[in-house]
Nucleic acid binder design. Sequence first.
DNA 1: TCCGTCATGTAATATGTTACATGATTAG
DNA 2: CTAATCATGTAACATATTACATGACGGA
Lengths: 183, 183
Amino acid sequence: MARSSQTDMAVLGALSIEPMTGYALREAIRDVLGHFWSESFGQIYPTLARLEQFGHVERDPATRAYRITAAGTRHFHELLAQPIQDVPARNGLLLRLFFGRSLGIEACRALLTRSRDEARRRLAEYDEIAATVATESQHTDDAVFWQMTVSAGRHSARAAVAWADECLAVLDRFPAAAPGTDR
Amino acid sequence: MARSSQTDMAVLGALSIEPMTGYALREAIRDVLGHFWSESFGQIYPTLARLEQFGHVERDPATRAYRITAAGTRHFHELLAQPIQDVPARNGLLLRLFFGRSLGIEACRALLTRSRDEARRRLAEYDEIAATVATESQHTDDAVFWQMTVSAGRHSARAAVAWADECLAVLDRFPAAAPGTDR
DNA sequence: TCCGTCATGTAATATGTTACATGATTAG
DNA sequence: CTAATCATGTAACATATTACATGACGGA
């Protein structure tokens, strides 16, 4: 047990779809899983080295790509079945808004507008990704699941937009007070 | 600069509302900010010690409670104005679902059901909190902002429920395949 | 040849959690 | 007086990011 099994899971999972070099792996994680997962360079290489030691991955001498082994696949399935490790909640936007009285209404408005625009941008991005997955992977058994993760992003982004709009409306009706009026 | 200014922000912010001991501070952060923020014991005490060294907080000799100073309030306002530091995305549920073909449909269904029930539970919790804030803090200038953070939780939980329902419906229509059929 | 990209890796640093150690205070 | 809770702190460990060092390879 122990160790950040979630990093192992991401790496083994990516390699289970297609053998890759460490470099390509980092790009795949960033570009494909990027909406809900991230791994840094400094994590990927040591993880690959460790997985190779345990015989969970091996290198193709010709292409230098890492390939998952039978043992690695077994390990991957074990990891997938493990309970989800939630990361501690840390929402910098909500933390600032909670102290909105100290931050000042104008600054809050700016944060909310920014966050809403960001969510809208994400929404457009998800639409593109969904279209790509639909055309490129429609015959894969993976497609359904990939669409689910995109859909999660969509729902979450739509909720973010609606929430921000609601908050901005509340602020508009709010009696204009001097910013940063503590105590 | 430097240092986890976000931890400083949470601590100073909490103390700006009311002086507290380190112990009470941890409880306040867990119970009040818990839906969007978390700090562990091992962070809070060193942070308080450091803030005291810099004169940002001081102790009431009588009650032992930490109190924010004028310098601390200035520092707090500076921190609030700093750009939001996003935490790297790490959604264990979506990571597993992405590899749903390997995980198996039944396990996916279980994960989704669990996640939906969890979101429903959160939804009920937010309703309670909203009611509490409405009655207890309605005359505070803080109330509007606190309601916003609760509303964020509500929107997000509702989106989570809708998304999970949608996914479960998709899986119901999905041709039952053997679980864990890799390659 | 020289630049950009591919590729691998390590070291320094930051951050953060958990478990442990310790003692004061207070309610029953 | 004794168990529970309040309270403070540290040490060990885990995790992760960033910056740096190094070099191969292919195309302009």
